[in-house]
C-alpha cells in the first residue's frame, strides 16, 4: 500500500474543517434520532387533536416570530423558549447556563421586554415579537461599545448582557453611572467584566468616555 502523503492528509482535513462547523457536526450526528422523533411527534399531533384550548402533552405546531421572521416549529408544551430557539430553530445566540432564571445568559426580548428564555415556555411566546442577539447587527452602537470597552472575557454572558442592555436603554436612553450600575441585577458575568460592561452601556448611551480599543 502506498503511504498517503502528509500533504494530502492536510488537504483533506482543511476541506473538512471548511465544510463542517462544530455545531453543524453535532447537529448532523443528531439527525437520525431527530428525524425519527419528528415522525412520532407528528403522528401524535394527528392522533390527538387538541380539545378546546388544551394543547399537548404531545407536540403541537407553533409559529414564533423571531427577529421579525415567522418561524414554524412543532414542540411539546414543556419545551422552553430557549430550547426551542436553540434546538429547533438553531438560533443559538441565547445561551443556556443556569437554566433556572438566574444568570441571564439566555436573555432575549419578548414584546420588547428582557426575559429569561429558559424560564418561559415556547408556547407562551406565540404571537409575540421575539428578539435575539442574532437580530442585533455588528454595526449596532451597543455591540461596538462592548468591543471598544472590552466588555467581556470569555464572552458566554455577552449575548444576554447586550439584550438586557438593549431593553434597558430603550426605557432609559440617558442613564447615569449609578443607574447603569443598578440596572443589570439580572445578569451574571463569571469573568467579572462588570466595569467595562457598565462603561460600554454608558458609551452606547452617549454618556461614556469611549474605550481603548480601535473602532471596528
Amino acid at each position: 500500500m502506498r503511504p498517503v502523503s502528509s500533504n494530502k492528509i492536510c488537504e483533506v482535513s482543511k476541506k473538512t474543517k471548511a465544510r463542517v462547523s462544530r455545531r453543524g457536526f453535532i447537529r448532523g450526528v443528531g439527525i437520525g434520532g431527530g428525524a425519527l422523533g419528528t415522525g412520532i411527534l407528528e403522528r401524535e399531533v394527528l392522533a390527538a387533536p387538541p380539545a378546546g384550548n388544551l394543547l399537548g402533552p404531545g407536540a403541537v405546531p407553533l409559529t414564533l416570530t423571531v427577529n421579525g421572521k415567522p418561524q414554524q416549529l412543532v414542540v411539546e408544551p414543556r419545551v422552553t423558549l430557549l430550547d426551542a430557539l436553540r434546538n429547533q430553530l438553531h438560533i443559538t445566540g441565547a445561551k443556556p447556563n443556569c437554566d433556572r432564571g438566574t444568570c441571564g445568559s439566555c436573555t432575549v426580548l419578548v414584546g420588547g421586554k428582557a426575559v429569561y428564555a429558559c424560564s418561559m415556555l415556547a408556547i407562551e411566546a406565540r404571537g409575540k415579537s421575539i428578539e435575539t442577539i442574532e437580530g442585533v447587527p455588528a454595526s449596532d452602537p451597543l455591540v461596538a461599545a462592548f468591543v471598544h470597552q472590552d466588555g467581556l472575557q470569555c464572552g458566554f454572558c455577552t449575548p444576554g448582557f447586550v439584550m438586557a442592555a438593549k431593553a434597558y436603554l430603550k426605557r432609559n436612553a440617558k442613564p447615569t453611572e449609578a443607574e447603569v450600575a443598578a440596572a443589570f441585577g439580572g445578569n451574571i458575568c463569571r469573568c467579572g467584566a462588570y466595569v467595562p460592561i457598565r462603561k460600554a452601556v454608558l458609551d452606547a448611551a452617549g454618556r461614556g468616555k469611549g474605550g481603548k480599543n480601535a473602532r471596528i
Partner: peptide
C-alpha cells in the same frame, strides 16, 4: 420536565374548570 397539557383560558371560570 415531565410533559403536560397546556391551556390558555381567556376567562377565570374557564381557568377554574381546568
Amino acid at each position: 420536565m415531565q410533559s403536560f397539557a397546556y391551556a390558555s383560558p381567556a376567562t377565570l371560570s374557564e381557568a377554574l374548570a381546568l
